[in-house]
């Protein structure tokens, strides 16, 4: 169906420029040889990329974000798979309430979640600890994992599991041999989306980190609000490249639109 008019093509082109412009300038600025932000850069220099190495703060923050992303995505996935099987498996009293609860972090303003976690963790004396951060991030990413796993669970034909049972398979065997392989794409997609969400999270995290557990977005944020030198641009560029690589892999494996829409749209 290639019946788009010239107007539609022009509209799409301008829209694409609008979407890409801020990313392009960030990458462009990162290559400046000067000591201030300029675009287009007056030359091409890797000066500010080398400068990252002299700022171990950023590297530590990136490592912290990676660890946090992996830990929270993994825990969220492990608790979401059984929950999704329960919610997607059939009607029971309280099912809708349960689902609403697990999706509620999406509707509560993130700043509210941030202060709530801050209040809670500081009362327990866990504020700024890695363990505290991980469990806060688990709550934030659970909705994303649940939506994707739930979509693949409800997409399953329930008669397939019944067919396996009729052929003599026990409950655990049905799960391991039939259900699990069928929902693996949803689980993988959910984990990746959870990882990215955690890796990028700022609003909640900014309340509950301390200097030792600062994540990359928080480090970038505080740096930007104090000074704007090309260092933030080069760090951002590395983050963009990392995300693009991850995105391309996911698009090949799972489909970016399926990942983000959360339902089988292909």
């Amino acid at each position: 169906m290639t019946r788009n008019s010239l107007f539609a093509k022009l509209f799409s082109l301008i829209f694409a420029i609008f979407m890409l412009a801020p990313l392009v300038v960030v990458v462009g600025v990162a290559f400046t040889p000067e000591g201030f932000l300029e675009f287009p850069p007056s030359g091409i220099s890797l000066r500010w990329f080398w400068a990252i190495l002299d700022n171990p703060d950023f590297i530590d923050a990136a490592i912290m974000s990676l660890q946090l992303g992996v830990a929270s995505a993994t825990i969220a996935t492990v608790i979401c798979v059984p929950a999704a099987l329960a919610i997607g498996g059939g009607r029971f009293a309280g099912r809708d309430a349960l689902q609403a609860l697990f999706l509620s972090p999406l509707t509560v303003p993130t700043v509210v979640l941030g202060i709530a976690f801050l209040r809670f963790l500081s009362m327990l004396g866990l504020n700024g600890t890695f363990g505290g951060l991980v469990f806060c991030h688990v709550v934030i990413v659970v909705p994303f994992v649940l939506r994707l796993v739930l979509a693949s669970v409800t997409g399953l034909d329930p008669s397939i599991a019944r067919a396996a049972t009729s052929l003599g398979a026990g409950g655990w065997t049905v799960f391991r041999r039939i259900t699990l392989p069928a929902i693996v794409p949803g689980i993988v997609g959910g984990w990746v989306l959870a990882f990215i969400t955690s890796f990028d999270e700022l609003t909640v995290t900014v309340f509950i980190v301390n200097p030792a557990t600062t994540t990359l977005p928080v480090k970038l944020f505080s740096h930007i609000t104090q000074t704007t030198d090309p260092l933030v641009a080069s760090v951002s560029t590395v983050a963009i490249l990392f995300t693009v690589a991850l995105m391309l892999i996911v698009d090949r494996l799972y489909g970016l639109d399926r990942l983000l829409i959360g339902e089988g749209s292909r």
Partner: peptide, 19 residues
């Protein structure tokens, strides 16, 4: 183009707008 930016940190995107 549409969905990619969703996966990039809002901080990075806002830095772009600041520039």
């Amino acid at each position: 183009v549409v969905l990619g930016p969703l996966l990039i940190s809002v901080v990075v995107r806002t830095l772009g707008w600041a520039i």
